[in-house]
Design a protein around this nucleic acid. Sequence first.
DNA 1: AGTGCGGCCTGTCCGC
DNA 2: TGCGGACAGGCCGCAC
Length: 271
Amino acid sequence: MPELPEVETTRRGIEPHIRGQRIDDVIVRDRRLRWPIPRQIPSALRGLTVQSVSRRAKYLLLDTESGTIIVHLGMSGSLRIVTPQAPLRPHDHVDMIFANGKALRFRDPRRFGAMLWTRDDPLEHELLKHLGPEPLGNAFSGEHLHEHSRGRRVAVKDFIMNSRVVSGVGNIYANEALFMSGIHPRRPAGRIALPRYLQLADAIRDVLSKAIGMGGTTLRDFTRENGEPGYFRIELAVYDRKGEPCKRCAQPLRLITQGQRATYYCASCQR
DNA sequence: AGTGCGGCCTGTCCGC
DNA sequence: TGCGGACAGGCCGCAC
């Protein structure tokens, strides 16, 4: 479900409610996520104060004075600000109760998400330390993509979805960015010249920024911290539009499979 | 080293 | 109406 814009939308939504707030309690109803929620999480967190909510790739980092809660939403996770009395829905696995009377509620039907705890630098955590540059940060560029793709035969779509190359580019936005830059998703990454990578990097930045500005994309079930959907869906040019006319040339869009993921593209605009 | 899969889970939708 | 199968926004870990 959530890609980088949806995670960033969540971060912006929850931070004002929990920043500076003391954690009074943590209720774990089901610890079976991708990795089990550590047993010490409730006792370790009780009494700590959330200093800030930051993001690295699709990981949310709730920083406290003595450690960091690492949250990943996986395919179906969401975080919402509720009152602790709000009725529970299925798959509401965790509540963090704050001193201001609000609760941060973690829901994840498919349980591909994660909630972990580290007292060390979270960026050095095994899950985060090999991540490539942030696509909206200064270290990401067309030159970076060009340099790291030399000699590689992997399809460019899989290449930009590799989190060691650039972090946080998921399936929807990979499809969109390749359309925007006119690159065929199956083209081998090593056979794309620098000017096209400059365009692709621009497209990745643009599509992610714009989606964040619109509160992310809601296809099926993404909801923000307040339960609202994201509005970027109406801007999607190719994703989930099989057979519909290309917005540029009106040819029907195609759907193929790459790495067990859906790829949508225009066969005449993308080469 | 780079590449391509299988697998983790539940919910939903589609065709029969 | 019921049922099986395919599919879904992520990503680790393994075999080659």
